[in-house]
């Protein structure tokens, strides 16, 4: 949309707004998409970030809102609010309580799947109205830069010889743990898993030789890899990451596809179809913007777009996988 067109649309909006309140629907049409009837959106959006500032959900939410504002896609105010607590239970619980509304929204991450597994949240991911999956954050399998392991094969040989190796990650009922379990059982070695509270502590534990390996997101460790303090032996994504093309993917090493941390967008349960359709149509535009592409690259995310029911199915499948692994391991 060119600027002059946008301006004309804005002028039209102002004129219409003066004529009648019903013109609110024209606001949505004029600046958003053209094919949706009804008067959505006509109110401020209550945007929940289920984690604290600086985290993945936070960065993602703020980037989307910034694009929505820059491109004039959402005509009303958007109020961003960090509601952290209980591994996302607080924030997503708040969204859940807005049942039936089309004016609450939140991004989702891996905890959207794991938190309901470990706590009696009263909801699961499938209860919410899906907008779509946007990106995944895949992980690197990391060892110390001064360790003897140059390749994944080196590591497996060491681990098999030793029998049990010590690895660490944040939390227990978390994707980090599931990944470690999956690759260990596939490669044929055992792990002692040390759970930590924060990413920084895991990294420090690795550098202090307290653990032998960890999984970490690209945002945290690309700098470490570049500096040689840590070495990446494997990447869980389906394709090598653009910033680290030399790190082999799990699949290229002959392993089964590994789950990744899915980031998506959901509305409250039973949100009106008009709201869902509006957001799907709008987000389809957002993911095409240069600002979005640049953001994904900067954060080390991988594009993983799927909309509507497809996203719900994906959530359900991933939940089942996680549940099976965690139950097998006795963590649930």
């Amino acid at each position: 949309m060119t600027i002059s067109l946008m301006k004309r649309v804005k002028v039209a909006i102002v004129a219409l707004a003066l004529v009648a309140a019903a013109s609110a629907c024209a606001v949505g049409e004029g600046s958003g998409n053209g094919d949706e009837g009804g008067d959505y959106p006509s109110q401020a959006m209550d945007w929940t970030i289920a984690f604290g500032p600086g985290g993945g959900n936070d960065r993602l939410s703020r980037q989307i809102v910034e694009i929505l504002q820059q491109e004039d896609l959402y005509p009303e105010d958007i109020m961003l609010e960090n509601r952290e607590g209980g591994s996302g239970a607080t924030g997503w619980g708040y969204l859940y309580s807005q049942k039936g509304s089309g004016y609450g929204i939140a991004t989702t991450s891996g905890s959207f799947i794991t938190t309901p597994l470990q706590a009696d949240t009263g909801w699961t991911g499938a209860d919410f109205t899906p907008v779509g999956s946007l990106v995944t954050e895949d992980s690197f399998f990391m060892v110390r830069g001064d360790s003897a392991f140059k390749t994944w094969a080196d590591w497996v040989a060491y681990a098999k010889e030793k029998g049990t190796v010590t690895v660490g990650g944040t939390g227990l009922i978390q994707i980090n743990f599931i990944l470690q379990k999956l690759i260990a059982s596939e490669a044929g070695y055992k792990i002692k898993y040390v759970p930590f509270n924060e990413d920084g502590q895991v990294q420090s534990a690795l550098l202090s030789k307290s653990i032998d390996a960890m999984f970490a997101g690209p945002g945290e460790v690309l700098g470490q890899i570049e500096a040689g303090k840590m070495r990446a032996l494997m990447f869980t994504g389906p394709e090598p990451l653009a910033q680290a093309p030399d790190i082999p993917t799990a699949e290229s090493l002959g392993m089964a596809p590994l789950p990744s941390q899915p980031y998506g967008l959901v509305l409250p349960p039973d949100a009106p179809d008009s709201a869902k359709d509006w957001w799907i149509a709008t987000m389809k535009k957002v993911v095409e913007t240069p600002a979005w592409k640049k953001f994904i690259e900067q954060q080390g995310f991988s594009e993983n777009v799927m909309w509507d029911a497809e996203f719900t199915t994906y959530l359900e499948q991933t939940t089942e996988t996680f549940k099976r692994i965690l139950t097998e391991e006795g963590a649930l």
Binding site: R59, G219, G223, A227, K229, Q298
Partner: peptide, 11 residues
């Protein structure tokens, strides 16, 4: 990360 800086030993 939001500012586009890469945290790490080379920062």
């Amino acid at each position: 990360l939001m500012w586009g800086l890469q945290p790490g030993p080379l920062l």
